[in-house]
Design a protein around this nucleic acid. Structure first.
Lengths: 131, 131
DNA sequence: CTCGTTCTACTACAACTGTAGTACGACACC
DNA sequence: GGTGTCGTACTACAGTTGTAGTAGAACGAG
């Protein structure tokens, strides 16, 4: 996994929701994913099946067949997706300036200035507890 | 301007490119915007005209007609768009945790830990130099 | 062997996006 | 006044997304 860092992996909200199931649980049958999405968003299992097929075609998930069941696994990691999507957002809306983004987060009260200190300290020590 | 904070303003890369022209220069004729996009991305002016019409239909830009020319103005501010898009990204990929996003930025070397200090200090003083 | 169950694959369809051609109206220049 | 030019509006079309129905294959129960 953690494939294709060359390719841009930008996913929609729903697609990410599907991926999240795969990221969290590893290999899943269509039914597994569908069950979660049905609960979370009332989406029909056929819809989930369609989405998974398309994601497979795009190469962001891979499948394994066992008997008639199809099992899906994420081919791109959550980090890969974060990387592409954040850098896309950064490029288009913040002129590529990450500091402007952090600044925005503080202004919008998404984060407190004090948190920056904590983060800095923690990150300076090389810790990486995110995710 | 700075309209409709209720509505979600999520735009594509190209749409943002168009908006950026309007944000930077204020009211523009189709030709003005087209000229920039043609230079930046080799996009035909009819394409730009189409995009602008659609954005107007969506309510993110407004138009004024003078003689036969149409002049467009952004109806949503860059901040509005940043707000919606960042919070969308935050929600779908970072579990709504802005600190995880900052953490990601540092990990990906988009930003240096030291910058967090500078930002904190500046922001603590209530300065807002972004935009 | 037959019938119901289950799960996938195929088909469908509307909305949106990127891309652009064409046509049509108005204006300016001869 | 005719004609080329400019600019908008309309039309077109392929690709993607969200959504889901339906059909068909295979399996298990009788």
């Amino acid at each position: 996994m953690t494939a294709r860092p060359d390719d841009d992996v930008v996913l929609s909200d729903l697609q990410i929701a599907l991926m999240r199931v795969l990221w969290a649980r590893g290999e899943c049958s269509t039914a597994d994913v569908a069950e979660v999405l049905a609960r979370e968003r009332g989406i029909k299992h056929t819809t989930v099946a369609t989405m998974l097929t398309r994601l497979e075609k795009r190469g962001v998930v891979s499948l394994r067949r066992d008997a008639r069941q199809v099992y899906y696994t994420a081919s791109v990691s959550e980090s890969d997706v974060r990387r592409s999507m954040v850098s896309e957002l950064l490029g288009s809306l913040f002129g590529g300036d990450a500091r402007a983004l952090v600044s925005h987060l503080v202004d919008e009260a998404e984060i407190a200035p004090g948190d920056l200190d904590k983060l800095r300290k923690r990150l300076a020590r090389g810790e990486r507890d995110h995710d």
